[in-house]
């Protein structure tokens, strides 16, 4: 599948944004963060900026962005519609939580309720994002049960990396907890994607040129003549191919540079005082987000669509 820049930014930025919202909301709900202007302003500010950037970027992917509001109507059947609705719904508890936490001295009970609601909304929205892909049968690299957990744990890991750096500045009391948590999340992310890659490398063919044409009884089927001489929409959108050796390299970059290296950095920063620890935490954010962008690019580039069987592919 063609790795569209807008969709890659959309999923990575909103994943990290909802991940950060989830962590902050839980910390507030459990009383680990006490209301303060700067913690709230910067912390929630970054989370909102990230998932709002993601949403705006997803609009760029549309052919008719001015009609985007229509996408809220089909939540009964469409995961894309559900994702849109949930993203908007999340603004309510999260917005209230951020306002009350940042500007007012709200009652504990209110913060607990809003914090839990925001955390749940963040999780459910990311699940919906993953389900958009997970529900597409013609793309076997997406139609499997690794996809949604990977979206969740990568969102959480990148969110925790951000929260970790914020805590070093604004809430040293929770810094150690967050450092351990982000290490763990990064390791789980690396493991999930490792298992995912092993799965897509070894999964049996689901459809073949023979089943696509129904000509298998005659023998092996191959394309003799394509229907058109120039590339059409289908070739551009779904015919994207990446060389196996490039994919292997990029996987390694994401795995080692994107998740294992920041995990080691964060672990190491446990031994350091706050300011050098913050430097390491910042590098870890850059590495973690870059690695996840590489992972998301691969998620598209490596996915083969069944329509390729009509254009010379032999199995998907």
């Amino acid at each position: 599948m063609h790795p569209a820049f807008s969709v890659i930014i959309f999923t990575v930025a909103s994943g990290a944004g909802y991940g950060l919202l989830f962590v902050l909301a839980l910390l507030v709900a459990f009383g680990a963060l006490t209301p303060s202007f700067w913690t709230g302003f910067i912390g929630f500010g970054i989370a909102f900026a990230l998932f709002t950037l993601g949403l705006l970027s997803s609009f760029l992917h549309l052919g008719r962005p001015e009609r985007a509001w229509r996408a809220f109507s089909q939540w009964r059947s469409s995961w894309l519609s559900r994702e849109g609705v949930l993203a908007v719904v999340t603004y309510l508890p999260a917005g209230l939580l951020a306002l009350l936490f940042t500007f007012f001295d709200a009652a504990r009970g209110v913060l607990v309720v809003l914090g839990l609601l925001s955390a749940i909304c963040a999780v459910v929205t990311v699940i919906a994002t993953g389900m958009i892909y997970r529900s597409l049968k013609p793309i076997r690299a997406w139609y499997n049960s690794y996809v949604v957990p990977a979206y969740l744990v990568l969102g959480l890991a990148t969110g925790l990396l951000l929260a970790n750096a914020l805590a070093l500045v604004f809430a040293p009391a929770v810094a150690t907890t967050l450092q351990f948590a982000s290490c763990l999340a990064l390791l789980v992310a690396a493991l999930t994607k490792f298992l995912y890659w092993r799965y897509i490398d070894t999964m049996p063919a689901f459809s073949t040129a023979e089943s696509a044409t129904g000509l298998g009884h005659l023998g092996k089927v191959r394309l003799f003549e394509a229907p058109h001489t120039q590339e059409n929409y289908l070739n551009k959108e779904m015919g994207f191919r990446i060389a196996r050796k490039h994919a292997a390299k990029l996987r390694l970059i994401a795995l080692v540079g994107g998740w294992l290296a920041p995990a080691v950095l964060v672990l190491f920063s446990l031994l350091l005082p706050a300011s050098p620890a913050l430097v390491l935490a910042t590098i870890a954010i850059v590495l973690g987000l870059t690695g996840t962008l590489v992972e998301r690019w691969l998620f598209f580039a490596e996915a083969k669509h069944a329509v390729t069987l009509y254009y010379g592919g032999s199995s998907v």
């Binding site: 992917h61 052919g63 069944a306 009509y310």
Partner: peptide, 15 residues
């Protein structure tokens, strides 16, 4: 009413 999100084309195995 189509917004051009292209998702339907991804969902069609037949192109």
């Amino acid at each position: 009413t189509c917004i051009g999100c292209k998702l339907c084309s991804w969902a069609c195995p037949y192109g």
